[in-house]
Design a protein around this nucleic acid. Structure first.
Lengths: 195, 195
DNA sequence: CATGCATCGGAACAAATGTTCCGCTTGGCT
DNA sequence: AGCCAAGCGGAACATTTGTTCCGATGCATG
């Protein structure tokens, strides 16, 4: 007399298989991957896919909310000076974008979702505020810096991410370094240029 | 007895009408505008459109090569110091992107054309070289700057272009300023932050 | 073990969009 | 003026991709 019977075992199994397959597909092939391909990768018919996720949008949100939440959960590393924290944050962000093409499409692409990018900018501004708070103590950021300055520099880095070679770590740090000089209090005493 | 007779007046007229309409359509609505809409805007049937441009790609190249060439023809303003020249160049570039959505899609979007962006990067690197040559005299750029540094900072600006408000000129200069500090020899003695 | 409903698979539908086809029109030539 | 090929318009075709439909299947229940 249970109000609703126990869910079928193959049902829940399929759901997780779909989520896993979709996550991998989005990660590897970006936002443009189509529903048939995802269904096939999950070893499932499109009908089944649509039973679990009534809309492409639903699937995308389910899968990407995890990634985005993870991405947005990262704050400034606690033990570092403001400028160091930003450096680390930027490096992590670029690595995340490199490892997840859907994320890259979403944040460095044509802005298919105005909303997501707004959310991202808000988060970056919060990071900026954290950094400025910390800089009030360690003075590693230029005194006239605003949270928006920081947010935009980080966004610049995110949006050029697809064009900086991840093969060469030096290249990566150089791009971050030169960009962050815009808000550093001692922009010149760091990192000589590579040969 | 002429090998080929004179082209029909309506033919050439249509061609220019198509080019003008397409240019405006791409400028206003971006790369996603479809052929029917362009044909309609030109006051012409799709058949006619395809008679003059066998492929969407052909039309795009014809129209955008003009814009891209124009965009790539701009060098550093002659009479300015290196850093000033870059400032002006960046400002012009951002204005151009704001006035031409197709250009913005192409350079700040998902990179539908890897080739165009590579060409753009090459051009920006040349700009960087010009600036460095000039800085050898006026020393307005940091001594350890490379052409790639300059190219990437300019590309960053280009790729965040859709997110900086063009309504507020102060906002615009601030973004350029903070970004260019990364390669300026005297990054701190400029432009106080807005209230 | 029999039943019935949730779930499944994938063919079919719908909409968007690049492209082709073809009968009609029209401007250039004689 | 009359011929006729170049040019025209837009219906129709092809492909892609999101979504729906429905007969077949198989798990939870009694």
């Amino acid at each position: 007399m249970s109000e609703d019977r126990k869910p079928r075992r193959d049902g829940v199994a399929n759901r997780t298989r779909i989520i896993n397959a979709a996550a991998k597909a989005f990660r590897d092939d970006g936002l443009t991957i189509d529903m048939r391909t995802i269904a096939e990768a999950a070893g499932v018919g499109v009908g089944t896919l649509y039973r679990h996720f009534p809309t492409r949008e639903d699937l995308l949100r389910t899968v990407l909310d995890t990634d985005l939440a993870e991405f947005s959960a990262v704050g400034l590393p606690a033990h570092l000076a403001a400028i160091e924290g930003l450096r680390t944050f930027a490096l992590d962000a670029l690595h995340a974008l490199h490892a997840n093409r859907a994320l890259a499409d979403l944040l460095a692409g044509s802005a298919p979702s105005e909303a997501e990018l707004a959310r991202c900018l808000t988060h970056l501004t919060e990071i900026g505020e954290q950094a400025l708070t910390r800089s009030a103590v360690d003075h590693t950021l230029a005194p006239d810096t605003t949270p928006e300055d920081i947010a935009f520099l980080l966004l610049s880095l995110i949006r050029v991410a697809p064009f900086v070679g991840h093969a060469d770590p030096d290249e990566l740090s150089r791009r971050i370094e030169v960009t962050l000089r815009g808000i550093s209090s001692s922009p010149r005493d760091v990192q000589p240029r590579r040969s």
